[in-house]
Structure formats: structure tokens, C-alpha cells
Design a protein around this nucleic acid. Sequence first.
DNA 1: CCGATGCGAGAGCAGTGCTCTCATCTGTGA
DNA 2: TCACAGATGAGAGCACTGCTCTCGCATCGG
Lengths: 254, 254
Amino acid sequence: MTVIRNARARARAEVRAEILTAARAQLARTGAEGISLRAVARELGMVSSALYRYFGSRDELLTALIVEAYDELGEVAERVAAATAAEPAGRRWVAVARAVRAWAVEHPHRYALLFGTPVVGYEAPERTVGPGPRVPIVLARIAIPAPRADAVDLGRLGAGEPVVGPALAADLARLRTALAELAPDLLAASGPPDVLLRAVLVAWPQLFGLISFELFGQLRGVVGDGDAFLAEAAAVLAGRAGLQLGPGGYGSQP
Amino acid sequence: MTVIRNARARARAEVRAEILTAARAQLARTGAEGISLRAVARELGMVSSALYRYFGSRDELLTALIVEAYDELGEVAERVAAATAAEPAGRRWVAVARAVRAWAVEHPHRYALLFGTPVVGYEAPERTVGPGPRVPIVLARIAIPAPRADAVDLGRLGAGEPVVGPALAADLARLRTALAELAPDLLAASGPPDVLLRAVLVAWPQLFGLISFELFGQLRGVVGDGDAFLAEAAAVLAGRAGLQLGPGGYGSQP
DNA sequence: CCGATGCGAGAGCAGTGCTCTCATCTGTGA
DNA sequence: TCACAGATGAGAGCACTGCTCTCGCATCGG
């Protein structure tokens, strides 16, 4: 495993990259279901069986595309979070949400690959570990230092109701354990017990739900300006998480 | 079009139903992607070409399954709403949410067919019209009469910010038009302008997001008790929509 | 009763994922 | 430097898919 690999390994990596590029293009054109190993091979001027030297199966190729897309989306979110570091937490939250939506609109099939129907169900390990949780970590990093303890308002539960129920307390503990590996700094700063829950477990799936609803056509004919809709809804979520938007609301620049 | 159709039409309807039943079983077994016209035909002891007398294409068969699933899910939601008619709005909201989740867990592939990645993208007309909006209408019917005007808290916008932005105001108008056909009684009772928005456009996609996240494996290894998680999160959403849970929180019976 | 129509069977086409074998090309150790 | 092992590509082939077309048979309506 030297840094300068031999020519064979180098060529191999290049062919692998070319295959991925062709597959990515085909994904953008026809969606995940339409990706054909044979068509990818054809486009590269090789025969389908040769492709199996590089990817053991169609699912393996898809998995590579999934990991790649996770990484790209994670990078988008991290870049926006870094670029807005000086702004109030609420505005950063909305900015990241809009960026995630913009990426989804630009690459709908890749987004569907990540958050749509699981292709087979076997790629669970890949999903949870690795680049999967990058976006929620970005959101958590924005949200967690911000909320004040008095912002806790978990749905106006009846008097005497615990803020976090026993089942969710266990989930919370599990989440903390997972976070200890992925982002140990977050763990130290995560404050009151429900803040993590709101930021990661509640706000993030809801944000995803809004984007998916638009992208998968559930809001077709109802919502006109998807970005405005998402921005407003994300501002609601940010408010619920106790984040301050500051003067000027959530802003309007994309 | 007499009520008592002739024998030919009767047999035709029966065969159609048998095909749908076999396809439904296959969907439950292998998911939408795994549904094969030939396998369905084989199971029914007919040849694949004969099946084309009843469904013009695989997509047409899938569309029939989608409509069917929409109807069944809508009926589940309506039944729960009716059964809890006497309870406070917040508890009804949570009860419907849990019922939707329970249906999704029981029929994951059918749920994916409705709310996952669109199979082709062409069935947009089917989605928006017809049985599609039954669940959000149930939720709106629960939520709309309930909220008090002072519950409006759209994300703690900056002072002077309009509660509903101009882009969303247009969406709201469109939504009202659509509702005028589907549920005219709702239109009359819908109260302050943002209530509809919160109930249908925000809360429903977010609820869907929570369910999908669990079902599509995004929360795998994080959330243990999915029902408890959803109930708590739905209670949060209900609270945001200004619904009262009443004493005893959102209850715990499934 | 007879023609029009509905319907099932079968063959066939173009495409798919994947496996196997066989030839060739290349990197490396003797 | 050379020969051998391993990596790579080509091709044929298998079982499967959605879908179309044609050809008979049954059935229904006039």
C-alpha cells in the first residue's frame, strides 16, 4: 500500500472512476431503477462481463453511488454551515435546510437514492455508519449550543408529564453513544437532555419530510415556490428548536 | 352500464381482482421493484400475454395498487378519527399519526409505493386527485376547528415579519381552491389564514418524514421503540398546531 | 344461427443481471 | 532477462424480464 501505486492499480482506479462517472450520468438521466450495467459498459466501450471485475454486482455499483452522494450532500451542508458561521443559529439552520433542498432539486435521483425507498434493504450498514449522518451532525452542531433551557416546550404535554418519555430516554442514550464516536465535541455541549432529541431526532426527519414531499410529488399543484415554502417551514422548525433568527427573519438569499 | 352486468364483464372483474390480489401478495413479499407480470400470471395459471387483456402495462398494474393503498390508508385514518371523535384534538391527532405509522409498518412496501421514490413519475395526476389527500384531510379536519388564534407562533419570526410570506400566501390560496372541491366544509371553518398551512402543509409532510425515516432505515440503530418515538414527535407537532392534548398526555394505547 | 368480439396460448423480440471459459496482457520474482 | 502468476477483457450463454403479434377458440348479441 504505497502512496504511489503501481500502474495496474492506477489504471484500475481510473477505470473504476470512469464507470462511476458513467453510472452517475445514467442515474441523473433515468433514475436508479433505470441504471443498467450493460448500458454503462456499452458507454465505456467495454463488454458487460468486464465491468464485473470492478463491481461485483449492480447493487455494489449503486452502493458506491449512494456513498458518493452522501458525501457530496454532507459537504454541501458543511460548507454552508461554515460560510454562515457568524450569523444567528436560526438563520444558519434555515440556510443549511435550503442548501439541502437545493441539492435535492438539482440531483433528484441522487436524493431519492439516499432518502427514498431503499433499493433492497441490505445496505443498512453503509447507511448508518460512514458519511450518512453528516447532515444531521451539521444541524446538531448549529442547534445544540443555542437553545436556552426555558425554550423547552415539548408539545405542551399534560402537567407532570416527563419531558422525555422512558422509551425515548433509551433512544437518547443510544444516540449519545453513537455521537461519542462521530462528534465527541457535540456530546460535551449538548446541554439539557431533550435538545439532542429535538435537533437530531425530530427536526432532521421533519426537514427531510418536507423536502421529500416536494420532490416526490406529494405537493404537486399545491406549493408553488418550493424554496420559499421550505424556508418558512424550516424557520418554524428552527423556532421550535429554540434557535434565534435575529432581525430580518430567515433572510431570502439562496 | 347496468348494475347486473353480463357474465363476461363479471368474469372480467373477477379476474382483474385476482390479478390484483396476486400482485398485492407479491408486492408484500418482494417490494414494488420485484413485482413481475410474468410471475403474477404464472401464479394465476395463465400466460403473461393474457394478463395484458386486463392491465395495459406493468405500470398500470402498479398504479392500481397505488390507488388501492391510498384508499386503505385513508380509511384507516378516517376510522381512527371517527373512533376518537370525543377526545381532545391533540390526542386525536396523535392517534391518527400512530395509526398511519402502524399501517406503514404492517405494509412497508405499500407505504413505500405511496410515499417513497416515485416509480416513474408519470402517475402525478393519480396522486393529487382521487384518494391521495384523504389522510391530510383527516388531519386537517381534526386540527382546523381547534387552534386558538393566540397559538400562532410561526417560528418566532422577526418583529414586523408577516406570519405568512407572499409566496406561501399564493400557495394557501391554491390550497383553498383545491379544498373547495374535496372538503368544502373545511374551507368554511378554517379560521386564521395560517392554520391550514400549519395543519396540512407543514404538519403532514413532517409526520410523513418521521415515519419514512424510520421505515426507510434512516433511524436504524438509533430509535428503539418506533411507536413511542412517533407518538412523542406527533405530540410535539400537535402542540405546535395549537391542539390540546388534555390530561394524561397523548395516551399510550396503540 | 352467425358474425363480431373477448380472451387465452404461444412464439418471439429486445433487453436485463450474472456466470463461465478462454485468450491476452502485464507486473514481478527468480 | 525471462517465465510464470495474476489481472483483465471478450464472448457465449442462462434465466429472466416487459411487451407485441398472431392464431385459434369460446361466448355474447342481434
